[in-house]
Write a protein that binds this DNA or RNA. Sequence first.
RNA 1: GGGCGCAUAGCUCAGUUGGUUCAGAGCACUUGGUUUACACCCAAGGGGUCGGGGGUUCGAAUCCCUCUGCGCCCACCA
Length: 879
Amino acid sequence: MQIPSKYDASQVENKWYNYWMKHNYFHSEPDEREPYTIVIPPPNVTGVLHMGHMLNNTIQDVLIRRARLLGKNACWVPGTDHASIATEAKVVAKLKEQGIDKNDLSREEFLKHAWEWTHEYGGVILEQLKKLGCSCDWERTKFTMDDDMSEAVIQVFVDLYNKGLIYRGYRMVNWDPEAKTTLSDEEVIYEEKQGQLYYLNYKIDGSDNTLTIATTRPETIFGDTAICINPNDERFTHLRGKKAIVPICNRVVPIIEDEYVDVEFGTGCLKVTPAHDENDKMLGDKHNLEVVDIFNEDASLNSYGLHYEGKDRFVVRKEIVMELEEKGFLLKTENYINKVGTSERTKAVIEPRLSDQWFLKMEELVKPAIKAVLGENPEIKLVPKKFENTYRHWMENIRDWNISRQLMWGQQIPAYYYGAGKEDFVVAENIEKALELAKQKTNNPQLTTNNLRQDKDALDTWFSSWLWPMSVFDGIRNPENDDINYYYPTNDLVTGPDILFFWVARMIIAGYKYKGEKPFNNVYLTGLVRDKQRRKMSKSLGNSPDALKLIEEYSADGVRVGLLLSSAAGNDLLFDEALCQQGKGFGNKIWNAFRLIEGWEIDKTIPQPETSKIGLEWYEAKLQKALFEIEDHFRKYRLSDALMTIYKLIMDDFSSWLLEIIKPAYQKPIDAKTHKAVIEALENNLKILHPFMPFLTEEIWQYITERTPEQALIIAKWPKAKSVNQELISEFEFASEVISGIRNIRKQKNIAFKDAVGFSVINNENIKSTFDGVIAKLGNLESIDYVTEAIEGALTFRIKANEYFIPMAGAIDVEAEIKKLTDELNYTEGFLKSVQKKLSNERFVAGAPEQVVASEKKKEADALAKIETLKASLASLDA
RNA sequence: GGGCGCAUAGCUCAGUUGGUUCAGAGCACUUGGUUUACACCCAAGGGGUCGGGGGUUCGAAUCCCUCUGCGCCCACCA
């Protein structure tokens, strides 16, 4: 077969992806093998691939491909999320471009647009994952709004409602006035903003006195229903039991007392606006205050705002300050930095707002989930462990989950109203069942579906994705089906720490509630991908490279390696394209190594040289050691370290050392035995590298194996681990130091490699000759002579206590040589002194473990021996 | 404000119970090299008071205290 001299990634990658798909290697069905399952964190259906996805999915693919090679039944379930807020926002924006206002559309019409959008852009991201090489079981692709998935969500809602865990409540929620929807606490980002603190005078009813309050939000005075003072504040005892008059609207409000008020802050007087501040709401409930909501849905003022009706809150703030000033109510203003909640999606300033919402009681549900991660025998491991603290903090302070969203895109809440009263509703899977329930509840057999009105709200997206590991296997609707029984619990979950609570914690809760079992064994939390300046990669900053362009430029394999080279679990990844270049370069290196081997002519008649034999034995030992280390790294989810181990094995041990050791002389053939062995070594390299660089390895694999589809690398068997010949490895390390010594001398004296040199070593019982052939070949030595005394007129170097000579008539600079030896002697004597000092310390000898003392004694002996040879050499030079 | 975590070479990071192999890796850098796979290369080399200070110990990057500088989470006093 003709082997191209350049590796053409784009062609190769498409070819093999199609090949794998054609032979259905990604697909999994339950069988007798051990399952290895990952469910993908479903990306937003209308999203495009960004660096975070690339990292995330590369890690998952590495884990899945390795499991496949280890002979497990690997199943990676892909899919997308309907992402209600994000998607609805995009659809609304698109409609707006076309001059359509969402509010003019019926629910059905809007959903039609949303589905069109989904069909147009949905799945783009999945196609991009294929480019990256992800070996997902595409036949199992799921979407959180698929009919069966939605059914599961509704079933769970009804069940939780019937168990009394879902309730309807009038609560202060985070209202996004732009999206006109509620946000969960987690979707609100607090930002420091420069604002003002306005000091306002309120008249005291029935007197000419005033009191001063400080507020950051003067426009909310229309919602004031009380003034609050601290009962311990002696400055205000005269106000007890009095009433105050709210400026402009002239509402007369009581002055109440509560220790909640901070005497130190502002003026010590607080205006209470129960409709627009959570703490004020709390005060309002406690003191039975009136609740006056002054805002419309879009945060413009309603009729309570009098002449400001219809104007936006920020406009009103400016205007009312002017009016207050004109009328003498404004005492002063101060600059004040406060934290303002903004919407993660729309960036709008959040308005605390009272509204009817659906809530899920968390207190009981959360208990098994806490135990599973933090209990005495944890069933679920978070990697890295440091996130357990964060998890604990959240879980132990959990509040009820607001699961309703004022959106259309999502599962509609299955509550059906038959009357105007607060309790005039029933909850059921569908309208027919709802009708039955409504008839029973009202004792009115005349009711028809026309009398029922379904709740307009949709469910929070996380209320569908928290079921993901179960619902993708239909484990909610059919709890005992073969798939769920086989694949659940899944093995590893790979996701970002930013959704540890949104998603991971809730999946754990749902898993225990609906399956009585954890959803996964391990959670691998990746870091955020940042740029070199440590900024988070984001669209708005424009610092995120185009994922597909990167793949084009550096190949999918190169990008995968680039991403993994520096990404320890939980650590942020500082992305640098140079890393992809390193990945691509690594690919080229392997390709060229392969070409070298394939280029050799094989001669079956020649015997295997001893150097090749011992070199191959050594490489086998190194491979075994690497296998052991890789196993350990994977066990600890240290994928970067696993990759680095393979990188060094292939770059250094295989390419730089082994291939040089066995390389036949120019235009000479290689013996068959060595050739076969080196091919085997290459095969093993390809196997362990395949999870990281699937395309390149599969490409080379086709050339070196007589393959049938059943012998594709993707389904090959991971190399068997045997014992590690550590002694051989240590001996080689010593030999490589000797070779470095020779190369150093060559460099210092400008001796070209093609010129063979003489070489002697003073014989002693510690010298091992195992790798002499290798030393001679890689040092280009005429021979290795064992001598009993120093060679005169030779260049020397020492490794441990052994002294080596390269004869070099006339080229020796005696002065320089003496200086070199003297420096080395001084250093060694200093070293000896420190060792001996340690050994003469009785407490060290008594207190340190035997092993440590022995090693110090060995250091002492080595140093003494070395000093002796140095002195001898010096003496011979002096003479 | 409360909690958690981090600080090791120019950069990104390893460093397990304090002691062989403890001061390491990759990249970057410097020098030399195009004979025979690869300049997308090879060989050699320099570089760190382990954030500062104090303590425990025969012995500290590792344990304790403290200071400094960062990061994250929670609560956010009108």
